[in-house]
Structures are given as C-alpha cells and as structure tokens.
Nucleic acid binder design. Structure first.
Lengths: 207, 207
DNA sequence: TAGATTGTTAATCGATTAACAATC
DNA sequence: TAGATTGTTAATCGATTAACAATC
C-alpha cells in the first residue's frame, strides 16, 4: 500500500471499522462479514470491501472476516500497534473532562502531561495529572517526543499556542476551539466543535 | 430552495461559513469575498459560491458579500433565527463540562434542562443547572417541546436512552458516546468521538 | 471606464455502487 | 456439492473545479 495514494476519506472510516470490530470482539463474536459490519455502521458492504482492499486481502470467500485478525490489521495500518503519548493543553472545564475521560488508553492514547497558562492552576490537579506551566512548553514536548496534542484552550489563544506546538515539532493537533487554525501541510489538524454539529441538524428541523 | 435537493455535505459547510463570518464581523469587517472566506477555511472560492448559490444570490459582482447580511441569511437557512432549547443527558465529567461551556447561547442554543440516572446526583448542580432524574424524561421533554438532545452518557447506556428520546419525539441527537446509534430516518444524529479523530491522524504519523 | 467578483455552466475529478468470477 | 462472501472491475453517481459572461 502506498499511503499517499489512499484517499483521506477512506482513512477516516478505518477507525470507525475498528471501533465496531472491537465492540463485536467484546461481545464474544469471532467472525463477521462486510454486510454485517456495514449494517452496524450504516455503510454499504461494497464500500467496506473496497476500503479494505486498499491495504490487502483480509477476508475469506464464503466466510467473511476474522474479527480479531482484521482489528489487528487495522491497528497496524493506523499505527495503533503502539501507545501514543499525548499532551493536553488547557485545564479548564473541558480540559479537566478530557483528563478524566477513561476511554483513551484502550484505543491507543495516553495523556502524558497537562498544561495551562493560568498561574493559579499550576500545581493543581486535573484528574490524575498535575497541571504544568506553559513556560517551558516547547522544551517539554520536545524532551518527551510528543507528536500529538489535544488543544482545549479558548479560541482567542488557540492560534498562538498552535505556533508554539509547531515550533515544538508537534505533528497532530486535535483542536477543541471553534476556529480554523493555520498550520503547515506537515501538521495534521482535526476539529471538534459541537455547535457545528447542532447547527447542521437544525437545518432539517422545522421551527 | 428545495431543502431535500441540497446535498447534505453542503449543509454541513454552512455552519463553518457562518462561524468564519461571525469572526470577521467581530473583527469589525463589513465586506468579504468568496476568495477571502475560502482562504480562511481552506475551501476553494468556487465551492463557496456554488454552495451559496443553492439558496439564493447574496453577493454583488465586483464587491463581494456584506458580512452581516450573509450571516443573517445563513442563520435563516439553518433555522438559527431563533434560540433552540436543548436537553443534556448525563452529568458526569463530560456533561458538566458541556453544562459549563459558555459558547452555545451566542450560536443559537440554550441548555434548558440536565438529566442523570444516578440518584446521588439528582438535585446537585452541574454548572448553573440542577440535575434532574430521568424518571420522567419522556414527559419532561414533551412538555418542554425539546427537539434536540446532547447525549453524554456511557456507551453502555446510550442506545436505551436514545429509544426513550425517540419516544419523547426528539428529532436531533448529538451523541458523545463512542458507538453508532440505531434511529429511524426521521431522527438526525451527529457524533463526537475524539478518539476517531486521533486515530485518523496517527495514520499519517511515522512511528 | 477599468478592475474586481459574482453566479452559473460545462468539464473534470473522485467516490460509491453494482455485479460477478473466484473460491472458501 | 451448494451456499455464501470475498476482492475487483466497470458503470454510475455526485462533488469539485475551471472558466467566463454578467455586472457592480
């Protein structure tokens, strides 16, 4: 597989497949089919087979897919056959909720360090994590080799923090602030803005 | 405009346009162009003009778009020329963070009521909201006429709560649980799962 | 008027689906 | 063997982009 040739929209579906497979495995299932998996996710079986075929042949004609095997392959493809250290910037309500969320480690991510710029918060705890000053942010992240950051700071500070992240050689940012960040092509950004989703749905609601 | 004929992917971009326009207005700008707006968002100017043309003619040749006017039109199209009451189900860490988030009201949404199924939480406060029992959930939501719910309960309870929401005539669900919900076509669902975004980005990271 | 930018059409590009030979 | 399901090809469908007349 040549990574640069696989459409990004396909890559975006792989974590969804992995999530459904993990659920099936927890339910004690061993085998599934593209039809069953698609039914679960609201995706056509043809699309699932096409997506997977970009990376290899993982199924058996007449039988389907071994759930554990396919999940392992997806983890390998997505570079989830390791645990990624992540830094969390921002220890407000949202940052604290993220710090307390227990759902990261099972899916490949570990919060390594938490930062805030508010002097009154430094040294306090956000869940299990001591809150650190952003004074040494670049050096800290470089020393720890952190490539992924969850950014939970106010929109007004998000771009300036982002520039420091870029300087620290961070390569992936999950931005919770409701703005579009400017980054070089070498840095990936994903956004979470709940209001965008709500506003998308109100189009379909009658007043 | 015939709503059913506009592609959903176009609808999904309108809130993004609105967000950028609102930012421009706050910065004191009065006029923008499809090129400037696109530059801000990483979208081509042709796409922005095409998207907007689905709903009418909002610009002036040679000049561009009046920011306030276009924002008002987008609000009207998205049914954001009113405030929507929203219920929040789940008053754990995430629910509490959502309850404390101040960014909803300016963008068209007001949290009206907060619910949890944990007896020890009933009567306590999540930010400015008293936590209510889910015992009377269907009746409560119907009485208040609530059509939109933010669902911040554990994955293990999300589907059963969803069935109660459907029974209560809720039409839009923003689901924070990492699962796919089963709902009839008449109910819209949007999902927020931060781990999916992280796993999408790790594909592009070298180990 | 000259310069700029819209709204729209046609062309291009890319993604999804249908269909089926291969084969478990 | 008969039934089922994959992986893949070709056809279809839909979205994006390029280009430009209209016009502010």
């Amino acid at each position: 597989m040549n990574p640069s040739k696989v459409p990004d929209i396909v890559i975006g579906r792989l974590p969804l497949y992995l999530r459904a497979l993990t659920q099936m495995a927890q339910d004690g299932k061993e085998i599934t089919s593209s039809q069953e998996l698609g039914g679960e996710l609201g995706i056509s079986s043809a699309q699932i087979r096409k997506d997977l075929s970009q990376f290899g042949e993982f199924g058996k004609q007449g039988t389907g897919y071994n759930i554990e095997f396919l999940a392992d392959q997806l983890k390998r493809i997505l570079h989830l056959d390791q645990i990624w250290d992540v830094a969390l910037i921002g220890a407000g309500d949202l940052g604290t909720a993220i710090a307390n969320y227990g759902g990261f480690i099972d899916r490949g991510f570990r919060i390594r360090s938490v930062y805030d710029n508010d002097p009154s918060k430094i040294g306090t705890w956000a869940g299990a994590y001591e809150v650190h000053s952003v004074d040494q942010l670049e050096k800290d992240l470089r020393d720890m080799g952190i490539k992924i950051v969850m950014l939970a700071v106010p929109a007004s500070h998000a771009q300036e923090v982002t520039e420091r992240l870029i300087a620290a050689d961070v390569k992936a940012i999950l931005c919770y602030a409701p703005i579009s960040l400017s980054v070089p092509d070498s840095v990936k950004v994903q956004y979470i803005d709940p209001v965008l989703h709500l506003q998308h749905m109100t189009f379909y609601l009658s007043k």
